[in-house]
Design a binder for these strands. Structure first.
Length: 469
RNA sequence: GCUCCCAUCGUCUAGUGGCCUAGGACACCACCCUCUCAAGGUGGCGGCACGGGUUCGAAUCCCGUUGGGAGUGCCA
């Protein structure tokens, strides 16, 4: 008899990892860590159409990204539900022998007809006392007992269900294969699961599962149903209409730590006035009793804000390192051979405070690695309507040919010109910025010029002057 | 339809009967800083769904209303 809390995370392999699933996994992981328990991963692959080996690796990888390390001593699995099929069937037959289940030969169509005739919905218990033997096409149904079932839920309190509202659900299909509800319970019992923490959508199923636990002769686990994540329409996040794949956020340059931290603030909050806290603090403070009862909107804007915080908290070398995949990616606008790590390193600090996602980095520095900047026509037209635009550029072209090539001197030169022309430097530099970078916004201009180099700078000034003739 | 869950700023939350003139964060707005854009700083806008109780006292407890959500398969 072990008193070690055993949590479990039981995703079905559907091809991508859902942010909602990520949060559930994190809750389980935090609790297992906090209580010195175990996190059991079980892949619910009973539905053949969902069964694909590579999906399993995807799940392990996603968990690893979140910091749920499958090599940890507190991690167990992965187990596969499909491996336990014989146990599920055996349990079903035991239930039949115990009188907790019976065979039924009604087809779904017949059930519907009967329901329609009775003006009600669902299966009406028709085969309950017909004493049918097993036979081809017959399903095994659970005999729901009379009374009420009380689900003790750590986040919701006691939830009461009148058993008359629970229909005699199917345990074994007509082809003999076990249904999810059964498989799930049998596995949980088999794996000594003590705590079931999952999304609220499973709450209506819980009385059925609890009945199954009891019929099988076991005390049910501690339940906890956490609210679902919703979109701006307040509907449960779904892969069809919402951006829910963890991988997608990862690809955009959301840091794992930011994702984890953000996910944990949905339905719960760390103590104190700041939400940005390390995982260790979360493990220390997280309690199911403190989890909110209502659905939470998955706000990408706030996720990005968190990410910006985490990006800025990186040391410079860490930041440079983190950017690397996006700088080496195949879809960058420059030729891979033109990328210069040293050049990027020289401006990285200026970029770090200007992005909230790592995927933004490449367009912010592309002008440094391109032969010619990608010019935003609108920006060009707009900035070059200023009457000082051409004279300023011509002036720069001449002065920059001989000036000391430091950002201080580059700036000092334009400062002087601004003074002379009675124009603010902010306005004056705009055409130069567009000529060099192609855009009106970007990293500080003079530092950019310094790393770009004299030759390239002069070339781009000439090119811009040529365009305006 | 039926079953169940839920209800504090636009959003995420703090709040477990007096500390609440309801706190923080994101977003938004203004100002400061400033070579653009950010970052940073300061300030602002903005909420206890409604109606009844209980209580000396209710965001907090109870009931109802309204409004949301989830489930309702021989899917998981």
């Amino acid at each position: 008899m072990s008193h070690t809390p055993r949590y479990r995370f039981a995703p079905s392999p559907t091809g991508f990892f859902h942010v909602g699933g990520a949060r559930t996994a994190l809750y389980n992981w935090a609790l297992a860590q906090r209580e010195g328990g175990v996190f059991v991963l079980r892949i619910e692959d009973t539905d053949e159409s969902r069964n694909s080996p590579e999906w399993t690796n995807g799940i392990i990888d996603a968990l690893a990204w979140l910091g749920i390390d499958s090599s940890s001593s507190q991690f167990e699995g992965p187990y596969f539900q499909s491996d336990n099929a014989s146990k599920h069937v055996a349990a079903a037959h035991r239930l039949y022998e115990l009188g907790h289940a019976y065979w039924c030969d009604l087809t779904p169509e017949q059930i519907q007809e009967r329901a329609k005739a009775a003006g009600k919905q669902g299966y009406d218990g028709y085969s309950r006392d017909r004493g049918l033997e097993p036979g081809p096409g017959r399903v095994l149904r659970f005999r729901v007992p009379e009374g009420t079932t009380v689900v003790r839920d750590l986040v919701r309190g006691d939830v009461e269900f009148d058993n008359t509202t629970i229909e005699d659900f199917v345990l074994l299909r007509g082809n003999g294969s076990p249904m999810f509800l059964l498989a799930n319970v049998v596995d949980d019992i088999d794996m000594n699961i003590t705590n079931v923490v999952r999304a609220e959508e499973h709450l209506p199923n819980t009385p059925k599962q609890q009945l199954l636990w009891q019929a099988l002769g076991h005390e049910p686990p501690v339940w906890a149903h956490v609210p679902v994540l919703v979109n701006e329409q307040r509907k449960k996040l779904s892969k069809r209409r919402d951006k829910v794949a963890l991988e997608q956020y990862k690809d955009e340059g959301i840091l794992a730590e930011a994702m984890v931290n953000y996910l944990m603030t949905l339905g719960w909050a760390p103590h104190g006035d700041t939400e940005i806290v390390p995982w260790s603090t979360i493990v220390e403070q997280f309690r199911l009793e403190d989890v909110n009862h209502s659905p939470a909107f998955f706000d990408v804007k706030k996720l990005q804000a968190f990410n910006g915080e985490y990006i800025r908290a990186l040391s410079l070398p860490q930041f440079i390192n983190a950017c690397s995949p996006w700088l080496m990616a195949e879809d960058v606008s420059w030729n891979a051979s033109q990328f210069k790590p040293k050049v990027f390193a020289a401006v990285a600090e200026l970029i770090q405070t200007r992005v909230v996602m790592l995927s933004e980095v490449s367009t912010m520095v592309d002008f440094l690695f391109l032969d010619a900047p990608i010019v935003d026509e609108q920006a060009f037209t707009k900035t070059f309507t200023a009457d000082f635009a051409r004279p300023m550029l011509e002036h720069c072209r001449d002065a920059y040919a001989t000036i000391n090539w430091t950002h201080e001197d580059l700036k000092a030169h334009l400062d002087a010109l601004a003074e002379e022309l009675q124009v603010k430097l902010g306005k004056l530099q705009a055409p130069l910025r567009v000529a060099i970078t192609g855009r009106t916004i970007g990293p500080p201009l003079f530092e950019s010029l310094e790393v770009l180099g004299r030759e390239q700078t002069l070339r781009r000034i000439d090119a811009a002057l040529l365009r305006t003739v």
